[in-house]
Amino acid sequence: MNTKEIQFKQLFEENKDRVFRICCSYVQSSQNRDDLFQEIFTNVWKNLGSFRNESHVNTWIYRISINTAINYCRLQNNNDKRCQEIKQDILSDEDAKLARKTILEKEIKIMFDTINRLPVLEKSIISLVLEGLDHAKIAEITGISEGNVRVKFHRIKKKLKQMMEEQKNEL
């Protein structure tokens, strides 16, 4: 196994859960989620040569993940349906049966359904906040100012709260 393969496997092990969560924020059907997951790691492999600074691994992975997700969902006409499958139940994924029994609770499902309905920038900001990234890192990944991230985050928080409550009531 060469250095590139070792590095890739290590990055995969360390980041597969992060990437999976980003996938869940953008697409919800298991088939599309798996496709997107694979597409993100394909781009990780292709860009491995540009990965130098290990301290910035999170930013690096998130940038690739979010840009790939946008590309997957929005930039191709025939892929539009991929991101509109928000009604499909994340809990119905056979591959995740084992995990979901304990992890995917109702609230998580509602949260992903709600996040999935947000516009692209809001979706990215909220996903990254939930991942625990600070505003400076989010600004770096999205390309907007830190102040703007802060303002938008407060707006999204309110919006998300309202949307989640509506969703809960619907259920």
């Binding site: 890739f8 496997k9 995969f12 092990e13 597969k16 859960d17 990437v19 999976f20 969560r21 869940c24 798996d34 997951f37 694979q38 790691f41 994924d93 591959d95 995740a96 084992l98 995990a99 992890i103 995917l104 609770e105 609230e107 998580i108 949260m111 906040v129 939930l130 991942e131 625990g132 928080k157 998300l160 709260k161 989640m164």
Partner: peptide, 25 residues
Amino acid sequence: MNFEALSKKYKELKSPTKNTDGFLG
């Protein structure tokens, strides 16, 4: 809505894919 609690729950979500070989063969 408690964001910290939500974030904690969010991070509990794990990928069902175990390794790089699990994708296609």
